[in-house]
């Protein structure tokens, strides 16, 4: 006679990946990945209860408003959506957030920032893209600068970063520029990711694994 024991049947979200696997590939510990899973479950069920983060849910979490969008939130969502299927799965969430971990190598942050700013996926940051991003920031911040000043800022930046002078910033030029100007990577690190379980005790779950 067959014997089946079912002490705990844990139903995970679609796209769930084992914390031990994700911890081995990222800057997070196993218990931190488990804590992130608690956060992920909240975010991914805030509107559509399918265990996947849709863009509206991402916007709701970022802005407290499901309909508010901005250029950078769209870009970050697209970069988190590694499979390019319009939703963020748990593994994608953890791997992408890991870029922002203080212990993640600077080179990874530089590469991620380049992809973020390469709006049209041409492999370069082009002048028009940079201007578009500056205008988006100004619009978002309710700051007004005349077109002339925006042109000055963009021109000045290209003078410093576009070493070949071909009107576009390639990944090597970006890397060099970012290393010379560390403040550019400030938004690529979230200090509290270093110990999520301390910073966000509400996400702490009883881990069965000792890190």
């Amino acid at each position: 006679m067959g014997c089946f024991t079912s002490k705990h049947v844990i139903k995970h979200t679609p796209g769930y990946e084992e914390p031990t696997v994700l911890a081995s590939e990222t800057s997070f510990t196993v218990s931190e990945v488990e804590a992130l899973y608690e956060l992920f479950k909240k975010l991914s069920s805030s509107i559509i209860k399918d265990g996947l983060i849709h863009k509206e849910e991402f916007q709701l979490a970022l802005f407290r408003n499901r309909n508010k969008r901005n250029l950078f939130a769209d870009r970050i969502f697209d970069l988190f959506d590694l499979k390019r299927n319009g939703v963020i799965e748990f593994g994608e969430f953890v791997r992408s957030l890991s870029i922002f971990h203080p212990n993640t190598p600077e080179a990874d942050k530089i590469a991620f920032a380049f992809k973020l700013y390469d709006l049209r996926h041409t492999g370069y940051i082009e002048r028009e893209e940079l201007k578009e991003m500056v205008l988006a920031i100004l619009n978002e911040s309710d700051l007004f600068l005349s077109n002339e000043f925006v042109e000055i800022i963009v021109d000045k930046t290209f003078t410093q970063a576009d070493l070949k002078g071909d009107g576009k910033i390639n990944p090597d030029e970006w890397e060099e520029f970012a290393k010379k100007n560390p403040s550019l990577l400030k938004n690529m690190t979230l200090p509290y990711l270093k110990d999520i379980t301390m910073a966000f005790p509400s996400f702490v779950v009883n881990s069965e694994v000792d890190d």
């Binding site: 956060l39 909240k42 975010l43 979490a61 970022l62 802005f63 407290r64 901005n70 250029l71 950078f72 939130a73 970050i76 957030l97 922002f100 700013y117 940079l130 991003m133 500056v134 988006a136 920031i137 978002e140 911040s141 700051l143 600068l145 000043f149 000055i152 800022i153 963009v154 000045k156 930046t157 410093q160 970063a161 520029f177 100007n181 403040s183 550019l184 990577l185 400030k186 938004n187 979230l190 509290y192 999520i196 910073a199 966000f200 509400s202």
Partner: peptide, 26 residues
Amino acid sequence: EQPTSMNAFELISMSQGLNLGNLFDH
């Protein structure tokens, strides 16, 4: 610091639109 004294990427990196911290504020 005046916006015009920064380079464009510095301006962008200060953007609240890039602040992922709100994801954790639940």
